[in-house]
């Protein structure tokens, strides 16, 4: 199925917020093509080994369900300690670069 293009890699990079260089776009296109070509075997595996049976996907090997916690407060972090780790802070808030307009 693959044959991933430079443009597709550029799209993936945008979706994943990576400011890839031109060289990287070309390089990753080649590598992802090889990797995807190899991992695409999973569909074939399902057909060959599944032998027409219904094979539900397993997103988690754990057989657990209904793990919850009671609605009871736990201690919070000290905001000063948390904000001391932030690249920028102001007025006890995280300072972030301008967010492009929604309106």
């Amino acid at each position: 199925m693959p044959a991933i293009t430079r443009e597709e890699v550029a799209h993936l990079a945008r979706l994943s917020r990576l400011d890839l260089s031109e060289d990287e776009l070309v390089h990753y296109a080649e590598q992802l093509d090889v990797i995807l070509g190899s991992v695409a075997r999973v569909s074939e595996a399902v057909q060959q080994l599944g032998q027409g049976q219904d094979i539900p996907p397993t997103s988690h090997a754990l057989p657990l369900v209904n793990v919850t916690r009671p609605d009871v407060e736990r201690p919070c972090l000290d905001p000063a300690e948390v904000l001391a780790q932030a690249p920028a802070a102001q007025d006890q808030r995280f300072r972030v670069p301008r967010i492009l307009g929604e309106d």
Partner: peptide, 12 residues
């Protein structure tokens, strides 16, 4: 084709 099939392989 990718993520879904991979999770089926996990079942196998």
């Amino acid at each position: 084709a990718y993520y879904g099939s991979a999770q089926q392989v996990r079942t196998l």
